[in-house]
C-alpha cells in the first residue's frame, strides 16, 4: 500500500502536462493459506492524459484473466422424473477467472471493441471439436453464467476511481474459491474510442503453507497420502477410545 501513497504524492507534485502510463498492483502474489477467505488487491497507475475536464478524457479498462482450463459444460434432462446430466460440450482453455472493470466515462462500444481485440468476452471460449455444433452458444452462455454465480467471472463498470488528474485506482476482489495459477493483468488507456496505451503483467495465485503442502502431497504421492490418511485416522480413533475408557 505504501507504493500507492508514493504514487499519490507523485501525482500531486508532478506537473499536469507530461505523464507516463504506469500501472502497478498492490500484490503480485495471492497466497491461499489455511484461513483464506478471499483477497483484495488494488490495481493503480497513472494515465498519460490528464483526467480533468479536457475533452475526450481518458478512460481505463482493467482486465484480469485466470489460467485457461479445459472445462466441461453439461445440460440436465428429465428422465423418468429424475434430472440427469445428458449433453456435454467441452471448452478448451476457458479462463478460470475473468474480472473486467471500466471507468464510467467509457461507453459500451470502445469497451466491447477492446475486449474483442484482446480476446476477452463472449467469444473467448473455444469449443472442443468433439461437441455437437447446434447449441454451442447456449452452452457458452451457461459457462459464463455458472462462473458468474461462482463469483469467478465479473464485469464491473464504474469501479475505477480517479483520485487525481492522472491517477486511477480500482479494487479487485478474489473470492475464496479462486483457482490457482498464473493470471494476467491487462490495463488499457482509452481515448476517443481508441486504445492509446496498454500494458500487461503477471499475477500468481498459489496455495501456501500447510494447505499447499497437503495438496501437493495428495496429488504427487497419492498412495503414500492414502496410507498417511489411514494412519492419522487410526491413531485419532484409538486415542479417543483410550481416553474414553479411562474412568
Amino acid at each position: 500500500m505504501h507504493a500507492l501513497a508514493i504514487l499519490l504524492t507523485l501525482a500531486v507534485a508532478a506537473p499536469a502536462a507530461a505523464a507516463q502510463f504506469i500501472v502497478d498492483v498492490s500484490e503480485r502474489t495471492v497466497a491461499i493459506t489455511a484461513g483464506f477467505t478471499g483477497a483484495e488487491l488494488v490495481v493503480f497507475g497513472t494515465t498519460a492524459e490528464a483526467h480533468g475536464t479536457a475533452p475526450g478524457k481518458p478512460g481505463v479498462i482493467v482486465v484480469i484473466r485466470g489460467p485457461g482450463q479445459q472445462t466441461v459444460v453439461r445440460r440436465k434432462e428429465r428422465n423418468l422424473g429424475i434430472w440427469a446430466n445428458r449433453e456435454r460440450v467441452t471448452f478448451l482453455e476457458a479462463p478460470a477467472f475473468v474480472w473486467i472493470a471500466a471507468s464510467d466515462n467509457l461507453t459500451g462500444r470502445p469497451m466491447m471493441e477492446v475486449l474483442r481485440d484482446y480476446d476477452i468476452g463472449r467469444d473467448f471460449l473455444t469449443p472442443a471439436a468433439t461437441s455437437a455444433a447446434g447449441d454451442i452458444p447456449e452452452f457458452q452462455a451457461a459457462l459464463v453464467r455458472r462462473k458468474q454465480v461462482a463469483g469467478l467471472y465479473s464485469e464491473e463498470f464504474s469501479r475505477i476511481d480517479f483520485p487525481g488528474e492522472h491517477l486511477f485506482r480500482t479494487r479487485v476482489r478474489f473470492p475464496a474459491n479462486v483457482p490457482v495459477g498464473s493470471y494476467r493483468i491487462e490495463v488499457f488507456e482509452v481515448r476517443d474510442d481508441r486504445v492509446v496505451n496498454a500494458t500487461a503483467s503477471a499475477l500468481h495465485v498459489r496455495k501456501a503453507g500447510i494447505e499447499a503442502a497437503v495438496f501437493r502431497f495428495a496429488h504427487e504421492f497419492p498412495i503414500l497420502h492414502g496410507f498417511v490418511a489411514i494412519i492419522l485416522a487410526l491413531v485419532a480413533g484409538w486415542l479417543a477410545g483410550a481416553v474414553a475408557r479411562r474412568p
Partner: peptide, 25 residues
Amino acid sequence: VTLLQSAANQTVDVILALLLLAGSV
C-alpha cells in the same frame, strides 16, 4: 476405500476428515 480413493481420484481431504472426527469422538 481411503487408500484407493486417494490413489485413484485424489479426493481424500485429510483436514476435512480430521475436523469431522475431532467433533465426532
